Amino acid sequence: MNPISLFCILAGVALNACAQLLLKAGTNAVGHFEFTRANILPIGFRLATQLPIIGGLACYVVSVVVWVVGLSRVDVSIAYPMLSLGYVVNAFAAWYLFGEVLSMQRLIGIGIILIGVFVLARS
C-alpha cells in the first residue's frame, strides 16, 4: 500500500470516527429521548438543528468520498478491516471527551483489534 492509498484509508477511518463523536455530542445536547408519534417531529427537528449532528453528517459525506478514492487504490479485503481502527479511536476519544468507561475487557478487545489490523496490514 503506497502512502497516498494509506492516507485515503486512514482519512476515511478518521472522518468516520469523527462523525460518530459529533453525532454523540449532538445527541448529548438533546438528551435522552424516545421516538413516539407525538414527539417524532419535535425531536427530529431538535436533532436536525444541532451543529454537532450537522457536522457529523458532513464528516460522513466527506468520508464516503475519501473512502471511494481509497477503495479505487486498495483491495477491499485490506481496506474494509481497517475500519475497525475507528473502534479504537472512538473508544479512547469517548473516554476522554464523554467520560465513558474503558474497562479491562474493552481494553483487551481494543488490543485484539489492533493485533488483527497489524496482521492484516502485513499481509
Rank of each mutant, 00 (worst) to 15 (best):
Y87F: 14
C59K: 01
A48V: 11
H32F: 12
I54P: 02
A14Y: 03
C8E: 03
A19D: 01
A11V: 13
L23I: 11
L10F: 13
S123T: 15
R73F: 11
L107V: 12
A11I: 08
I9W: 15
G56Y: 04
L22E: 00
V117F: 13
M82P: 02
F118I: 12
N16D: 00
F98D: 06
L21K: 05
L47P: 10
V65I: 15
V119T: 06
G86H: 03
L71E: 05
V64L: 06
Q20D: 02
V61F: 11
G70R: 08
A29I: 10
I40G: 09
F118Q: 06
W95R: 14
G86M: 02
A121E: 08
F45Q: 14
G70I: 02
G26E: 00
G55P: 08
Y60P: 01
G111H: 12
A58K: 08
A91P: 04
G12S: 12
S123I: 14
V65S: 10
V117R: 13
L47K: 11
I40P: 09
L22N: 02
L83N: 09
V64E: 00
P81Y: 13
F118H: 11
A17D: 01
P42L: 07
F33S: 03
F92S: 01
I54E: 00
I54L: 06
A19T: 00
A91I: 03
V117C: 14
N28R: 15
S72M: 05
R46D: 00
G26K: 03
G55L: 09
L41H: 05
C8R: 13
A19Q: 03
R37Q: 08
I78P: 05
C59I: 01
I40D: 09
R106L: 10
L120E: 04
A94L: 12
V119L: 14
N2R: 06
A79W: 07
L71Y: 10
G99N: 06
T27H: 11
F92P: 02
V69K: 12
G44V: 09
N2C: 07
F35M: 11
I40N: 11
L83E: 02
V64Y: 09
F92E: 01
R37D: 07
E100S: 08
V69G: 07
